[in-house]
């Protein structure tokens, strides 16, 4: 039950993030939604590696690790975090160019102006 708490929260966050991505036409909002969605996936992953009453997976000299939580998901999620910040940064750079070309960050408005271009 204790662990399910994280899973439930992660699922709700996932849905919220997806909702922001789908139902907001502002592109900055879409990127924030994407970030929320990603953190939800990370939460599921870390919760899966969590051990009740566990210790952080860091060995200190002279103190044996009795019950470390699983370090493998943490390494993977750290990579995921790096990836998500690079994707966000790249998406924001693209947004800047989109704003320069179209003068707006509204998806519907951009679709309309793209129609005018061609």
């Amino acid at each position: 039950m204790v662990q399910n708490l994280e899973y439930i929260a992660a699922m709700l966050l996932y849905v919220t993030g997806l909702g922001i991505m789908l139902f907001h036409s502002n592109l900055i909002k879409k990127i924030i939604g994407m970030n929320i969605m990603e953190t939800a996936v990370f939460l599921i992953f870390i919760a899966a590696g969590y051990v009740r009453g566990g210790q952080p997976p860091i060995a200190l000299p002279g103190e044996p690790l009795l019950l470390p939580v699983n370090p493998l998901p943490q390494a993977l999620i750290l990579t995921g975090l790096v990836v998500s910040v690079s994707i966000t940064a790249y998406a924001l750079a693209l947004l800047r160019e989109i704003y320069r070309h179209f003068g707006t960050l509204d998806a519907a408005e951009i679709a309309r102006r793209k129609g005018e271009l061609t």
Binding site: L94, E97, I98, H101, F102, I110, K114
Partner: peptide
């Protein structure tokens, strides 16, 4: 860096 490209890439 053309409008269509940036939009498609996004």
């Amino acid at each position: 860096n053309r409008p269509a490209n940036v939009e498609a890439a996004f």
